[in-house]
Amino acid sequence: MKTKILMLRTNKVDPDPRVEKEASSLIKNKNYEVFIHAWDRNGKYKCRKEELELPNGKVPIYRIGIPGNWGKGMKNNIFPALKYEISLFFWLLKNIKNYDCIHACDLMTGYPALLPVKIFKKKLIYDCCDYYADSQHGPNFIMNLLKNMETKVIESADATILCSEKRIEQIKPAIPKKVVYVHNSPNLEDFNIDNTNRRVCKSNTTKFKLVYVGNFCVDRWLIELLKSVEKMPSVELHIGGFGDYLDEIERIASKNNNIYTYGKMKYEDVLILENECDCLVALYETHLKNHIYAAPNKFYEALAIGKPLLMLKNSGMSEVVSAEKIGAVMEPNFESFEKSIFEIKKLIERDQTLKSRMINIFNEKYNWKIMENRIFELYREVLKS
């Protein structure tokens, strides 16, 4: 009989590269049956069963439509979040016979799972994609409450997955039963970016091309990035994604012939676009504590395709960029931005081994095959215990 694994996520998984990679890897094992429960913040419906097409097959996904304010913070999202928590809790109880193991990807899915897991002796794997209290702004007593809740989830779980080794510091004082590190690496075997003749980039100029594809949310230095590129006509910005700043980004881009927007993109197109540009951007502002421990997808994508990276000083993985000399680390101001672009241009000209060095670092430390094997071993240990 197959082990039924239920993955829980507080977004629509449209896309969610980490969840999709993990689910795609798990269904390689024919002893596992995987399905997903996700929160659609743009919809309004009770629960809808759909199919998510992944590289290794199709996975059922149950999406619940509760309108929410994506990217506008905890204060503006508290009532939709509570409604979602209650809905998820009762859904888990109603479907208790349909899963053996819960793979919860954040606090808002892990906490409602605690009671069903304890009462009905289900396995719980907690995938701490973001430490919730450090990704929000609010009064100290609320932040302490959230930390206590997440500590409870971590210590109740059969195993905890962290997206970088540095994050073990972040989750203190929680003491997990078992920790596995699964980095946000792309699985390039699922895509054919080197051998495709298809172009995604909207420009064929020789200008220096920056690229960012991701969430248009606060604390990513996005508006500042666009306004900085405005002042540098020899530089282009290619920006794709969705979120709270979409309208503002479109407005700024419409006034500048060196800023190109792409909207929401398929992941393969993201990788192709990044491969066609000169430098990836991941500007996580560190006044949000979670960004000090961040493991941005862009960092791993840059390594995988051998493109230099621009990051903000002291943000997650920026120390690797500096130590390995694979990009530039900047202060959050225009002068530092301009200087860092110059540094990266010189790095590309001077270091002919840059691309191969970056790909070697990726293959030795972060290749998805390494991460996939860690997931397989984790599930073997948890399910046999």
Rank of each mutant, 00 (worst) to 15 (best):
L378S: 09
N11V: 09
K313V: 01
D278G: 14
E301W: 02
T160E: 08
I239M: 04
P60E: 13
E324C: 08
N333T: 01
I252E: 03
P186E: 05
I27H: 10
I249N: 10
K264A: 10
I125M: 01
L88R: 07
N257T: 08
G68P: 00
V211N: 15
P55C: 10
N187I: 06
T3K: 15
R350E: 12
Y267R: 01
S340K: 06
N76S: 15
D269I: 03
D16W: 06
I375D: 08
I171Y: 14
P67Y: 07
M371E: 15
K355L: 08
E377H: 12
A328N: 08
H291R: 03
I223H: 13
I142S: 11
A282V: 12
D194E: 04
L226G: 09
L378H: 04
F334P: 02
A81F: 08
I125E: 02
T3C: 12
P139W: 00
S164V: 01
C201T: 09
S164C: 13
T109S: 14
R198W: 00
L309F: 06
Y32W: 05
G57A: 09
Y293F: 14
Y32H: 04
E22C: 09
R251I: 05
G306Y: 05
K307N: 10
Y126A: 03
K30H: 13
I259P: 04
W221S: 15
L210C: 13
L93K: 11
C277P: 07
I64V: 14
Y111H: 09
V329E: 06
I5G: 09
Q170N: 10
R357H: 12
T196K: 01
G243K: 04
I125G: 02
P173I: 04
N256F: 03
H287T: 04
K384F: 13
A23E: 03
A174Q: 00
L222S: 04
D247T: 15
N187Y: 13
A323F: 08
N297A: 05
T205P: 11
K345N: 03
F191R: 00
F334W: 03
D158W: 06
D134G: 08
G71T: 09
L82P: 04
L107G: 14
L82A: 14
S385G: 12
T10A: 13
Y84M: 10
E230F: 11
E51P: 01
S164A: 12
I78T: 11
G73A: 12
V213M: 03
I252F: 08
T196H: 02
D14S: 14
D278L: 05
L52E: 02
E20Q: 12
R350W: 05
L383P: 00
S340R: 01
K227R: 15
E343G: 07
I171M: 13
E53R: 02
N140P: 00
E165T: 07
L188W: 02
A23P: 06
I252Y: 11
D158E: 07
I359G: 13
L271R: 06
L146W: 08
N256P: 02
Y132C: 05
L115Q: 11
K166N: 10
V117Q: 12
V179C: 14
L124T: 08
I61T: 05
M232L: 14
S254W: 05
N148A: 15
I193T: 10
F89G: 06
A133W: 06
W368V: 00
